[in-house]
Design a protein around this nucleic acid. Structure first.
Length: 441
RNA sequence: GUGGGCAUAGCUCAGUUGGUUAGAGCACCAGAUUGUGGUUCUGGGGGUCGCGGGUUCAAAUCCCGUUGCCCACCCCA
């Protein structure tokens, strides 16, 4: 242990083969759910010009102000124009930029895309939070209809359902209104809170300038009480944004996703307009939030594109993995099926050194015939040790090759579970193994 | 950025009021008569007790510092 002088950087981890069983299951589920709703994959660079994020997420957002992994410019005025780059802390900004650069506004405005990959935030790691984490997200551009908002929410919920989450899944929604509404609301809130600022908690005093909306979901009892008379967004919400919100709620109900209206959902990023939502799973307790998203109608325009509405969400896999673990998902049987992919189907054992070559050739032959995976020993283990290793590997069969078998072109096929073995011609091995595999699974 | 907890073999942990060559279980490797696994038995490899100082005749065990990890807050996926 003392010799391990290097380790994965703080807040990162190695995803070892055995860990990937679950992670790949998440990835496959995400892709399958997204594709079934007509979302196509998009991949953008892992890093972008820093300004892309400061512009879209907001200078004062926590992400921008203290959580960015930024690489300073290496050549002022050189090929990178003196720009600094930042490893993406989220996916929406990059995807919106790609939409603009791809010229979709003119040629095919309606685009439904999904992405899956690593994101980076320079934060203090803790349970369910890492500096490098995987996010699955979808973005739909080119339509302002609240039906699309509802479809995106439905997709998020279906992802969790496909993973085995139960009917307790909860869709919590709110609206941030249009930018003008939000500006008006912000001023109203500041006017309301300013006089009582001295009596608020330290966090609230700090949040006042950074993001007033946050004072609304403070958990300190005195603050909660002081929030009672705070002006509501409804008081300043424009008729269009209001109609959109109603349409969104109606569409959710049509989908059978009864929304829980939660005014405390405010989201930390500047680009959100109108719809904001989170999917929660109350059985998880304090860490019940599984994903979040919303509408960002001004973002594409902000990046220099034609005014184009957009809506999307993102799920962090770190929290999802934790949730699955707490809920005992996937079920043992499903997990066993997933892990089966790591288990060899056949182990080819050589009795003595003389059969090492023929064993290698036979293994290759079996692989070509479609048996998979086929493994064997390379470390000069005794037959006994090879059998032991075969048993430990979980291989369904072991093929034993000795001098007699080599001379007669046969092989001993041992069924590891039953402990029975039979001798048969080598050309018949593959068929026998594959037949047995298809009847057991 | 703030607060708290923990650091002993690959893993999970014991190590009594500081005292001889630091232990267990699991894992790993090799054997138990001649070409065979999963049970059992025997043996073996593996630790500068996170690191650096200090106290002491003597420290894994006490004190200080340092680093790392974990948890919570802020915030968020």
């Amino acid at each position: 242990m003392a010799k391990a002088t290097f380790r994965a950087p703080r807040g990162t981890r190695d995803m070892l083969p055995e860990d990937l069983v679950l992670i790949q299951h998440l990835e496959r589920t995400a892709r399958s759910v997204a594709v079934s709703s007509g979302f196509a994959e998009i991949r953008t660079p892992f890093f972008e010009e820093t300004r892309l994020f400061t512009r879209s997420l907001g200078e004062t957002s926590d992400v921008v102000s203290k959580e960015m992994f930024t690489v300073p410019s290496r050549a002022a005025g050189g090929e990178d124009g003196g720009n600094s780059y930042t490893f993406r802390p989220e996916g929406t900004a990059s995807v919106a930029r790609a939409y603009v650069n791809g010229g979709y506004a003119a040629k095919a405005p309606l685009q439904k895309w999904y992405y899956l990959g690593p994101m980076f935030r320079y934060e203090r790691p803790q349970k369910g939070r890492e500096r490098q984490f995987t996010q699955f997200g979808v973005e739909a551009f080119g339509a302002a209809s609240p039906l699309l908002d509802a479809e995106v929410v439905d997709l998020a919920v279906r992802f969790f359902e496909a993973l085995g989450f139960g009917s307790e899944l909860e869709v919590r929604v709110n609206t941030m209104g249009d930018p003008e509404d939000r500006d008006r609301w912000r001023e109203r809130l500041k006017d309301y809170f300013r006089p009582q600022l001295a009596t608020r908690c330290a966090d609230c005093q700090d949040r006042f300038e950074r993001n007033v909306f946050r004072l609304l979901d403070c958990k300190v009892p005195a603050c909660v009480e002081a929030n009672q008379g705070a002006p509501a967004l409804a008081e300043v919400l424009g008729p269009e944004a209001s109609a959109h919100h109603e349409g969104f709620l109606a569409a959710l109900r049509a989908l059978g996703r009864e929304p829980v209206i939660d005014p405390s959902i405010v989201r930390g990023l500047d680009y959100y307009t109108r719809t904001v939502f989170e999917v929660h799973y109350p059985p998880l307790g304090a860490r019940s939030a599984l994903c979040g998203g919303g509408r960002y109608d001004g973002l594409v325009e902000e990046f220099g594109g034609q005014p184009t509405p957009g809506v999307g969400f993102a799920v962090g896999f770190t929290a999802t993995e934790l949730a699955l673990q707490e809920l005992g998902l996937p079920p043992a049987q499903d997990l066993a099926d997933l892990e089966a992919e790591l288990r060899p189907q056949v182990y080819v054992a050589a009795v003595s050194e003389d059969e090492r070559g023929p064993a290698l050739a036979l293994a290759s032959e079996l692989r070509r015939a479609g048996v998979r995976p086929v493994v064997l020993d390379y470390r000069g283990k005794s037959l006994k040790a090879q059998l032991k290793e075969a048993g430990k590997s979980g291989a369904a069969f072991t093929v034993v090759l000795g001098a007699d078998e080599v001379s007669t072109g046969t092989a001993v096929l041992r069924d590891m579970q039953a402990g029975e073995e039979s001798s048969l011609p080598q050309p018949e091995l593959a068929a026998q193994i594959l037949r047995s595999a298809s009847t057991t699974s």
